[in-house]
Amino acid sequence: MASQPDNASRRAFLRNSFMMIPAVSLTGGVSLTASADEPAPNLGDYQPAFFSDDEWSFLLAACDRLIPGESAGKGPGALDTNVPIFIDGQMDSPYGHAERWYMEGPYVLDGSPDLGFQYPYTPREVYQKGIAMTQAYCQQQHGKRFEQLDGDAQDRVLQALEANDVDFASLGETQKLEASEFFASLLSNTKEGYLADPIHGGNKHMASWKMVGFPGARASFRDWVDQHNVEYPLGPVSLTGERG
């Protein structure tokens, strides 16, 4: 069983650890999208920079099913932690523009999936196309938009995307972007937004870190590494110095 540290060692440890808590200011390198004294925005007030209103409605609804909030059980959800804001921000990052990737033709679309992605789309385009085709699929199947479906029906749509049971080609896709690829991007970006440092726009107030017990950017454990099978007592800190 995990045990608690005894009081004396715990006190000494807390003293040392607090002395090492980070500077709030960062210089160069990392771009600051938020700072400790600038509170994280409310999702409801947020104006997406990249996604259109229609796309945004889809994203909110989908994220809510991928990581549901408190009502569905313990722990914050994707919407509680501003995951859609994170994804919107990523669309304008080097990642969203595929800035570091090799994007030269010819694009060979019939190779083995084990050789990695080959279609000519940046993540921005994957979202735009993926959302549009998913909405077309929902209209076909249910005569409604994704966000108008009830939760179970939304889950079935997401399951169909995941299993590649939605035929993107029949919905107009010409470059072999597959439903499962779109779903995989959406899911991994959702988890990233949930679990990454709040500096990137999601993980509001480090709620997911508190839930799992990850101490964030503390990055200093010489005093703790020899405490085996003992629960770590301190909450997380973020890159901007926010404490939880």
Binding site: P22, V30, L195, D197, A217, L239
Partner: peptide
């Protein structure tokens, strides 16, 4: 300098 705390502590 590029690795000054806390910059590297950024998983994403």
């Amino acid at each position: 300098e590029d690795f000054a705390y806390p910059k590297p502590a950024d998983e994403l």
